[in-house]
Design a protein around this nucleic acid. Structure first.
Lengths: 339, 339
DNA sequence: TGTTAGCACTCACGAGTGCGGAGTGCTAGT
DNA sequence: ACTAGCACTCCGCACTCGTGAGTGCTAACA
């Protein structure tokens, strides 16, 4: 009962603060929410909440502001997910449906997410570790350069150019190509390394240099983590909070330019929870102590493959952003299935 | 003589203003530059410069600030190009040399440019209109989907997935693939449309739907302007100017998220001048009235193929940025030649 | 015991005021 | 043509001070 009201007070504080970005006082609180008690009572609750570390005063005789801990409690226990309106859902569907290829899906998704949440959006490329080889092509571009093109069953295309020390024999190349095609066709990426381990044995010594480099390149292509690419969008939203944004936005912008940082922001989302929220100092990037990150995993089929999410100030609309991230993750998964 | 000094005064004003971001007065001017005359004389010159529209006062009894016109004159007549230091040049060379493919070159270039100019950098993908077809591949992914992969002589790979209404016959597809390969191999992109115009005639009626859609896709691939892609980097530098940056940086960030805008910024650079500078209102994007754009064309071989450049506040270090843009353009051209 | 009313206290914020100084234009002198 | 001097403007800064929102505490109340 008492506990209940305290939580209600915290919730009200978070909501008001998110809406106004100004410290909220006891009087304003009872006016805007019908809590059924007097400001004095609220003050007692607030004092208790402050003791427990959920809220803080910027200075004496100012209202209260939620701490990271306060937001955490809010997110964990209080905020109901705010479902998207059906026009919104329809818009998402339509927008993503018109994508033509994977790159396009990624770009569209990040724009969409940035637009509906009005935050910075991140989308990670889906991993292709479960892919298998549909086709492989080796083509000479000049006497010493050739290109390898790898096509997966999901329609992804990977390319590598290879520079050889010695001139390439067209015949040898054709031979390697044919045998390689037989060896790896329809094989899942995961079994390629083993297949390759015995592959070069069937060729004569003079072809070894060429075989070796091709083999190494292919190995690199199938083991490279393509899911280590993250698309970024909506950075302009950072500038929306003039001084309200804690500190300058520069360090944040700088951090967001590093792929590694983006991966860390997305990567460490907990395994199977549908949506992960990391608040303020909870997130692993130092420059972003005063931002929160809302991420979700998405996947085609039943296997989760990558993450997407949004980044914004800790005083963000958690309910709305969680709903949006969740919905977009769902739709993207579906779209990828269709393709 | 008198004219000479006026120009010297303008130059000094621009230099000081760029350095300090504060209106510069007559006294400070004679102190920091050895102009050999008294502040009063400078004041007369300044009054004249103001009449002619090269400088302006934010308010009475404040120093002068260069106008766009002033910067224009400065850039056209006064600023000697500041050559890069040789360690800088070496760094550029080394940094770009380690690129592995085109995407990598683009990404590295944009980072490099952003880093040395400390501005937002833009790099446009080189056009491939002069490419010719090295290889083309058609591969079925499922009964109704296939993928087309197009490889150019420069080693670029273009891909398209095609969705067919009717199930695809493997035999028909193989037939089309073989004939298409013969028809377009080694042909320059520019002549593909003509070749395709008579291509479908050789196939029986029942194959027409498939042939038609493949043909259309190929046509799309060779005529699509791949050079309409621009990589962006260094946006964090925008935040460096706290309030000094004219207005908020939000509209600028927003504008920079639009590919179309980036293209307009880069695209309309004058034909053969080595470096183009567009100052303030001169540039075609409304939201960027108070930014300047320094661009250069770069190219592999002797044909210029695309543009790169930097965007920053009008009070930027023109001499330094021009030198950097020029140098990077040169090196990128060279790197692309090697590849 | 939990809630409320009252009260004294704190302190950020905005408006008003005054002043110094940087900068200007003008005029008369060199 | 340049300079020195001078009166004038007006921004920016510091200072003050009243106001009001907000607090904690205490005592009364259900």
């Amino acid at each position: 009962m008492l506990e209940d009201r305290r939580l209600a007070v915290l919730r009200a504080i978070v909501e008001d603060y998110v809406a106004t970005h100004e410290p909220v006082g006891s009087k304003a609180l009872v006016e805007r929410h019908n809590l059924g008690v007097s400001p004095a009572t609220i003050r007692n609750d607030m004092a208790a909440l402050e003791d427990e570390g959920y809220i803080a005063q910027p200075h004496t005789s100012a209202g209260r502001v939620p701490t990271d801990l306060g937001y955490r409690l809010f997110v964990d226990r209080l905020s109901g997910v705010k479902p998207l309106s059906s026009p919104e859902r329809r818009a998402i569907q339509e927008f993503l449906d018109s994508s033509v290829d994977l790159d396009d899906v990624m770009v569209r998704t990040v724009r969409l997410l940035a637009q509906i949440t009005r935050q910075v959006a991140l989308v990670q490329y889906p991993t292709l570790s479960r892919s298998s080889v549909r086709h492989i092509e080796l083509i000479a571009l000049s006497t010493t350069r050739l290109i390898m093109v790898l096509i997966t069953d999901s329609g992804r295309v990977e390319q590598r150019t290879i520079e050889c020390a010695a001139p390439i024999s067209e015949i040898a190349l054709g031979d390697i190509r044919a045998r390689l095609l037989v060896a790896v066709s329809a094989q899942p990426f995961s079994s390629i390394p083993e297949i390759l381990s015995t592959f070069s044995g069937q060729f004569p010594a003079e072809m070894q240099p060429l075989v070796t480099i091709i083999q190494a390149t292919l190995l690199d292509a199938v083991t490279e983590r393509i899911d280590e690419r993250v698309v970024l969008g909506g950075t302009a939203h950072l500038a929306r909070y003039g001084d309200a944004f804690p500190l300058s936005i520069q360090p944040v912008l700088e951090a967001l330019e590093e792929q590694v940082v983006l991966l860390r922001l997305l990567g460490e989302s907990s395994s199977n929870a549908s949506v992960t929220v990391r608040i303020g100092h909870e997130n692993p990037v130092e420059a972003m102590e005063s931002t929160s990150v809302v991420t979700a995993r998405y996947g085609s089929g039943d296997s989760t493959v990558a993450s997407l999410g949004v980044v914004g100030p800790t005083h963000m609309d958690y309910a709305g952003n969680i709903a949006a991230v969740q919905a977009v993750a769902q739709y993207v998964g579906r779209i990828l299935d269709e393709q």
